[in-house]
Design a protein around this nucleic acid. Structure first.
Lengths: 119, 119, 119, 119
DNA sequence: GTGGTCTAGACCACA
DNA sequence: GTGGTCTAGACCACA
């Protein structure tokens, strides 16, 4: 796996897993790779994977059973929450990028609306 | 300078210069650093800078006068063009990111509009 | 500082700081030692201190300002919350210790009440 | 076996044996491990075991018969005594911990009573 | 100087 | 085999 050097790896790992959940490649209850195996697969230190897993535990996306492994939480609202969260991040980035080019709120709205009209 | 390892550096250099033009840090007619000096400053290979400069020449953003150096073009519409171009890139990224999360055109529009409403 | 080898050091660091807050030795707004300085003082690795600090950030006990340091949060309810938390831990330990000796709920209550009567 | 580095090991050994008696894992009249064997099993110096055994002899919990070994005393009140002793230790620790948090006698009583009410 | 991220790797607890 | 804790130490970002 290739990482963007401008963002912490553990945050990128979180995004990867979130996306897999959204796409249904990982389902509630599924076991994820062990810290060691995942670390080996993506060529990072196990501590970095652990950090990502811990962070996701605190978001109630993953849950860990000691000695057994780490699993996708089984909460019905989870998928919706993750989508909303990620959408919000993407939106925030978009708006701040546009503003940094000097666009005002109305202009941003118009650009988006006219761009989506034809589709 | 820090580069995102997932995109070619010359494209990132182009973006940096475009942004400086938009922000007025570089004005039409200004001389830019020589390829050699710029390369040294941002610690990249001079060939990489050359590629970025060439690309921008073909976009009529830079022009090189032999024996004198490289300058920001003095075209009245340039700034507007650059803004539109960059806005388009940002918008395209935004829409494709949202679609990859499973959002439909209507949903994207609604999310943007409601997010910009309060501001 | 001396640590009890049966509990993770970072948890013991958390307890130490909580107690200092309860005793008023650390007041809301106070700067705590830097990760490095504290680590050196108590002879542990800076990462271990960082872990304790992070954990306390997530409890809203500490807050970190990058490049400046780490500070005790300035929340009016904080002291009360910490006391309640620690009291609860102590109480839980007490009750489970008593139960492991074979005491029933009523017996525990009686023992406590009669012990506190004379004081 | 794991020891808490903040308390003398011989006291911790005493606690372990007392608990085994309370739980019925060791019965009056049972032979306990020889000092040498016990020391080897829990990886401590034989002198440490000796000190624990001596202490328990003086409490009439163990008795040593020369040439035969060391045995759990066969006194009917022993189990009760041990439970009372240990309960007292636990209680004392609890009350002093609560006081060090700033709780008054009445508060401690209330906290315990209300905590045990629901159970 | 301060915190943030990451690696390499040791050793432990739980099952 | 799995996660949990910890050390030693590198290098970076922010101020």
């Amino acid at each position: 796996m290739e990482f963007d050097s401008t963002r912490p790896i553990y945050l990128q790992i979180i995004d990867v897993i979130k996306k897999q959940i959204i796409r249904g490649e990982l389902k509630p209850g599924d076991k994820v790779l062990s810290q060691r195996d995942f670390a080996e697969k993506i060529r990072v230190n196990p501590n970095t994977v652990q950090r990502a897993y811990k962070e996701m535990e605190s978001m109630s996306i993953l849950e860990t059973i000691r000695g057994q492994g780490t699993f996708i939480c089984n909460r019905p609202e989870m998928l919706k929450e993750i989508k909303a969260e990620m959408a919000n991040e993407i939106l925030t980035t978009f708006i701040s990028d546009m503003r940094s080019l000097g666009f005002e709120t109305d202009e941003i709205r118009d650009i988006v609306n006219s761009s989506l009209k034809g589709e």
